[in-house]
Simulated scan of single mutants.
Amino acid sequence: MNDPDRWNEMAKQYEETAHPFTAPFAEAALARVPITSQTRLLDVATGTGALALAAAWAGAQVLATDFSPGMVARATAHGLPNLEGRTMDGQALDLPDASFDAVFSVFGVMLFPDWRKGLAEMARVTKPGGHGVVATWQSQGAATHLLLGNVVRDLFPTREWRTGLPEGVTVLGDPARLATEMVAAGFAAPAIETMTSDYLLRMTDLDPETQFGLSEDWGALEPADKQAVIDEVYRRADGRDVLPVPSTALIAVAVR
Rank of each mutant, 00 (worst) to 15 (best):
E9I: 01
M10P: 00
M10A: 14
A11N: 09
E15P: 06
E15A: 14
E16W: 01
T17E: 04
T17V: 10
F25I: 14
A26S: 15
A26F: 07
A26E: 04
A28P: 00
A29T: 00
V33Y: 05
T39V: 03
L41Y: 01
L41M: 11
L42G: 02
V44K: 05
A45C: 13
A54R: 07
A56R: 02
A60H: 02
A60D: 00
A60Y: 01
Q61H: 08
V62T: 02
T65F: 03
T65P: 00
F67V: 04
S68M: 09
G70C: 10
M71I: 12
M71D: 09
M71R: 11
A75D: 04
L80E: 02
L83V: 06
R86F: 05
R86C: 06
M88T: 02
D89Q: 11
G90C: 11
P96V: 05
S99L: 04
D101F: 09
V103G: 02
V103W: 03
F104V: 02
V106R: 14
F107Y: 12
G108K: 00
L111S: 09
F112P: 01
P113C: 01
L119S: 05
A120D: 07
A120E: 13
A123F: 14
V125K: 15
K127L: 09
K127V: 07
K127Y: 03
K127M: 08
P128V: 04
G129W: 04
G132M: 12
V133C: 10
T136F: 10
W137A: 03
W137G: 00
A143C: 07
T144I: 01
T144W: 00
L147R: 12
L148M: 13
N150T: 11
V152Y: 07
D154S: 09
L155Q: 13
P157Y: 15
E160T: 13
W161I: 04
T163G: 07
T163W: 15
V171N: 04
G173R: 15
M182T: 08
M182L: 15
V183E: 15
A184F: 07
A184K: 14
A188N: 13
A188E: 15
T194G: 13
T194H: 11
L200Q: 15
R202S: 14
M203Y: 14
D207K: 15
L214K: 11
E216I: 12
D217L: 03
W218A: 11
P223V: 14
D225H: 05
D225K: 01
K226G: 06
Q227P: 00
Q227M: 06
V229N: 07
V233H: 15
Y234L: 14
Y234F: 15
R235N: 10
R236E: 08
D238N: 06
D241V: 06
V245Q: 04
V245R: 06
S247N: 06
T248V: 08
A249M: 02
L250G: 01
A252S: 14
A254C: 08
V255A: 12
